[in-house]
Write a protein that binds this DNA or RNA. Structure first.
Length: 456
DNA sequence: TGTTCATGG
DNA sequence: TATCCATGAACA
C-alpha cells in the first residue's frame, strides 16, 4: 500500500507512530511456555479422541468408503461433496466462487440430520486453538516473550495490522477458546496486564465527519441509547421491554451492518435467523419474540422483511438524514476527484467501491486516536523512566504491562491523554471521548481481566 | 498460488 | 448494486 500523507502533521503521526510501535515490539509480552506446551499436548489428545469418535459415525464410514485412501476429515472439498452431492443436503451459504459452503453456520444447521457434524464443529474449534494460536506462540516466543509486529504501512484504511503472532485476533467471543489461549498470556512479575479501549470510537469518528445532530445527541446524552431504540423498532418493543440480548441483536445484526453498507434484505435475513434465541420477558409474559411479532401482525419472514425495510427507511431518511447527506456527498466527491481525505491528513485514492469510500476515512481516524494517545503515553513512560510499559495495541485499545505501585498514576495518565489532551490536539473531535479499562489481578492471566470501575 | 475457513476490531 | 478492515492455517 502507498502512504499518502497530505500534511506534515500526518507524516509526523506515522513517523512517531512507527517509533512508538518499535518500542512496543521491543518490550514484548510474557507468555507461559510450559503452559502452551502442556495445552498443546492435551489438545492433541482431544483431537485424536474426536477423530476416533468420528470414525465410528455411520456417515463418516460412508465418506471413508467413498474416498478410500484419499479420505481426509480436514478436506472441506470432500465434506462439501459428501453433504451436497452424496447426502443431497440443501446448501445454506455459498462461497465467493458460488459453491455451497461448509462453514460453521452450515454445519450447525445440518447437524440435526447428520450428527457427526457436531463432532466436526468441536474438532475445528480445538484445532484452531492448537494450530493457530498455541503453535504460533511457541514458534514466535523468545525467552518467554512474544514480540508481535505492529505495521502501519499495510492497511488501505491507514489502520495498523499485527503479525507473528497477530495480537489483534486472539479468541474472546467463544469463552472456552478464549480461556485456553488467554491463560498463556501474563503480566511481568508484580505487574497487571491492562487493556484501555475507546468506547464506541467508530460511531464517534463518523459523527466528526457528518455531524448529524441526532447522532451527536445520542453520543452526548448518556440517557439516550441508539441500539436500544433500534431494538424497539426492529422487534416492536417498548423501551422497557428491550433487554441486553435484543439490544445486542439490533446492534450487531442491524446498526453496524447498515453503517458498513448492508441493506434490509440482508439485515432482515440475519435478524430473522437469530430471533428464536430472543424472548420478551416482563411481569406478565415470557413469550418468544417471534410470537410477540405475530401479535403485532408480522406473521412470517416476508412480512418481517417488509418491516425491516420500513425501519431502514426511517433510520436513514428520518432519524439520520444529515448522516445520509454526508454519505452521498462523500461518494460524489470521490467520483469527481478520485480520492477521499481523512481528518488526520491522509488520502485514500485508487479504485474504491461506494462502501469503501464511506468507511475508509472513519476507520482510519478511529485508529489514529489510539495511535496518537499511545505515542504520548509511551513518551511519558520513557521520559519519566516508569517500570510500566505499553506492550500491544488492538485498533481501539492500548495494552499495558503495569507495575502495581504505578497503577493509579497510570490510569490517571491514560485517561488524561485519551479523553482530554487529544481534544486539544485535534479540534475536529467534537464529541466527548470515553475509555473503558480492563485489568488482570497482579500476576494474573489475560483471560481473567475484569473491568476497573473508575471513580472519576 | 488461490480459495475457504476461523479468529479479532 | 448492497458488511468495512485484517492474519493465519490447510487444502488442492
Amino acid at each position: 500500500m502507498n502512504i499518502h500523507p497530505q500534511s506534515a502533521e500526518a507524516y509526523q503521526l506515522f513517523h512517531l507512530g512507527t517509533l512508538a510501535m518499535a518500542d512496543v515490539e521491543a518490550n514484548g509480552i510474557c507468555v507461559d511456555v510450559p503452559y502452551c506446551e502442556e495445552q498443546y499436548k492435551i489438545l492433541g489428545k482431544r483431537i485424536k479422541t474426536l477423530k476416533e469418535d468420528l470414525d465410528k459415525e455411520a456417515d463418516v464410514k460412508r465418506w471413508k468408503h467413498k474416498f478410500g485412501t484419499k479420505f481426509n476429515i480436514d478436506s472441506d472439498d470432500q465434506l462439501g461433496y459428501m453433504l451436497f452431492d452424496y447426502f443431497k443436503c440443501n446448501p445454506i451459504n455459498t462461497t465467493k466462487s458460488g459453491k455451497p459452503s461448509v462453514d460453521n453456520e452450515t454445519l450447525n444447521v445440518l447437524k440435526d440430520e447428520h450428527p457427526f457434524l457436531e463432532i466436526l464443529i468441536n474438532l475445528r474449534k480445538i484445532q484452531k486453538v492448537r494450530d493457530t494460536y498455541l503453535s504460533l506462540f511457541l514458534r514466535e516466543q523468545v525467552d518467554g516473550f512474544l514480540h508481535p509486529f505492529f505495521d502501519l504501512t499495510l492497511v488501505h484504511t491507514y489502520r495498523s495490522s499485527s503479525r507473528s503472532p497477530n495480537w489483534q485476533n486472539l479468541p474472546v467471543r467463544d469463552p472456552v477458546q478464549g480461556k485456553v489461549v488467554r491463560k498463556a498470556i501474563r503480566p511481568r512479575k508484580g505487574h497487571r496486564l491492562m487493556g484501555i479501549d475507546y468506547s464506541g470510537i467508530e460511531v464517534r469518528a463518523a459523527s466528526w465527519y457528518h455531524k448529524d445532530p441526532t447522532m451527536l445527541s445520542y453520543i452526548h446524552d448518556k440517557t439516550k441509547d441508539m441500539h436500544r431504540d433500534m431494538a424497539c423498532e426492529l422487534y416492536c418493543l417498548s423501551l422497557k421491554e428491550v433487554n441486553s440480548k435484543s439490544r445486542y441483536s439490533a446492534k450487531n445484526g442491524f446498526v453496524f451492518p447498515e453503517f458498513y453498507g448492508s441493506y434490509y434484505k440482508q439485515t432482515a435475513n440475519d435478524l430473522w435467523k437469530n430471533i428464536d434465541k430472543l424472548k420478551l420477558v416482563n411481569e406478565v409474559t415470557q413469550e418468544s419474540l417471534k410470537k410477540h411479532l405475530k401479535k403485532k401482525g408480522i406473521l412470517n419472514y416476508q412480512a418481517y422483511e417488509r418491516h425491516v425495510q420500513r425501519v431502514e427507511d426511517n433510520f436513514w431518511k428520518k432519524r439520520f438524514p444529515v448522516y445520509t447527506q454526508w454519505k452521498d456527498k462523500q461518494v460524489d466527491f470521490y467520483n469527481e476527484h478520485g480520492y477521499v481525505d481523512l481528518l488526520t491528513g491522509f488520502r485514500c485514492s485508487g479504485v474504491m467501491r461506494k462502501n469503501q469510500v464511506i468507511n475508509y476515512p472513519v476507520q482510519g481516524i478511529a485508529f489514529h486516536c489510539l495511535l496518537w494517545s499511545l505515542i504520548q503515553v509511551n513518551d511519558v513512560l520513557k521520559r519519566e523512566k516508569w517500570r510500566t510499559r505499553i506492550v500491544g495495541q488492538i485498533h481501539d485499545e492500548m495494552v499495558a504491562d503495569v507495575y502495581e505501585p504505578e497503577c493509579s498514576e497510570f490510569i490517571d495518565l491514560v485517561q488524561r491523554v485519551m479523553c482530554y489532551s487529544i481534544r486539544r490536539h485535534w479540534n475536529w473531535i467534537i464529541t466527548p471521548l470515553e475509555v473503558e479499562i480492563k485489568s488482570t489481578e497482579v500476576d494474573g492471566t489475560w483471560d481473567e481481566k475484569k473491568e476497573l470501575k473508575l471513580t472519576a
